[in-house]
Design a binder for these strands. Structure first.
Lengths: 238, 238
DNA sequence: CTAATAGTGTCTATTAGACATTATTGT
DNA sequence: ACAATAATGTCTAATAGACACTATTAG
């Protein structure tokens, strides 16, 4: 039996054929009544010219961890560090990438539309695309399915948490927040029920300011710490 | 701009240093009042002689997909194909394995104790270990943390689903099922509340048989199709 | 009989849905 | 005043917790 030290010295990482490891991110926001996902027009083969998710190969020198890699690619495309990031799932198979056995670790983040948009407006290969429009587009790899899984996850969270709040700007009205939840679950939510939950959570701070579109001005709120972890024991109807 | 075909012909998968990709599995069961996890005594460096999770490097020729790899290693260690498998999370960082940048895709499965135990009793490097005992053991890599994440996931599911039923044999009593849920959430559950949910779901088939420990014999039930997907809109208290 | 466990009856408390009512703004 | 949207009042329905009660077995 060799010592661990000797074992590691003799260990050859090239003994096994390499698996392609990419980290892809599903970035979502809410703007003017629509949920939108950030897509990038691919400048390389395969799927050259197709829209796909931001992300790319793991960079073993730059990235200390998978989440590092996700945050790095998010900041590269949007110029901001989102306040909500979670790992969604990992897809890996022999045939999802023509270059070989490929594993994609999928992260997702929610962010305010405005904050990210000033950065992406400066380039023409990055765009927010309405989820409703995705059917018309043919996306690279299995990215359409990856987006679907992320959205389904948020749909569930809209029923028992306030996680969707991270798709809004820092200050927002309760109606706007309700609209994000409604867009996710694709159903109207009773205003009274929703407001009761906002109050019961105790996690929203009234800024004292108001915002008006049409009709009575609405109070502007901010999310406080802990909102990402808060859970209701009873779901909204789905 | 080269054609996609030319690009793929010139593509060299060895241009990037290989990332180590492993698939590890957290196999859980319930037996005699305890939740147990299947551990394997490692026969190789690193962590030679430590207990760790079943799993190993992705085999690019044998495995068509990540889930394939998980199922293959589960069957290798237990001799059975579990009825419930889900992907838990993926951990990856520069320093979790001394051999290099390593990614571990973690799957988890629930299975009946008896079905798997006849197979593992024939070897001495595989064992069911009570979750309560894990604190005394020092596990390989970050496997203790991976188990913790899987158990926490099932703890949540115990509050709004019947997924824990897959840790029991084909026929079981409602008390046994309740005990699995109680072991997961570490709290007693009202028998009446639990039975109400069993009835409301309509997903349990009374076998007509009974089973007796002490006291009144209990009816034996079987799970029917769809139980893995069933969700309550209201959680048990956590 | 008692002990033990399975299973039921029934009351209370909580909370989401429904929907009517009031409040506050612009035109 | 009217339209539009925000915010509240209040009733009902659904369902989990609490816990007492009955049922069925072994010894």
């Amino acid at each position: 039996m060799t010592s661990e030290q000797a074992f590691l010295q003799n260990y050859d990482p090239k003994a096994f054929p390499a698996v392609l490891v990419t980290v892809d991110t599903v970035l979502l926001t809410y703007h003017e009544g629509d949920l939108k996902v950030l897509l990038v027009k691919r400048g390389n083969h395969p799927y050259l010219g197709y829209w796909g998710l931001p992300g790319g190969f793991l960079n073993q020198s730059l990235d200390l961890s998978l989440e590092d890699a996700a945050r790095r690619s998010i900041e590269a495309k949007t110029g901001i560090q989102p306040h909500y990031v979670e790992q969604i799932q990992t897809q890996g198979s022999q045939d999802r990438d023509p270059r070989g056995w490929s594993v994609s670790v999928v992260y997702s983040a929610l962010m305010p539309y405005q904050a990210a948009t000033q950065h992406i407006d400066t380039v023409d290969n990055v765009a927010w695309v309405r989820l409703a429009e995705l059917g018309e587009l043919s996306l690279a790899f299995d990215h359409a399915a990856l987006i679907e899984v992320a959205v389904e996850r948020y749909r569930q969270k809209a029923l028992y948490s306030f996680v969707p709040v991270f798709a809004l700007p820092k200050a927002f009205t309760i109606s706007q927040l309700r609209q994000v939840h409604e867009a996710l679950i694709d159903k109207p939510i009773q205003r009274k029920s929703f407001l009761r939950r906002v109050e019961a959570s105790g996690l929203f701070k009234d800024t004292g300011k108001t915002q008006q579109e049409r009709g009575r001005p609405a109070s502007l709120f901010e999310a406080t710490k802990g909102i990402a972890e808060y859970r209701f024991t009873r779901n909204l109807e789905s």
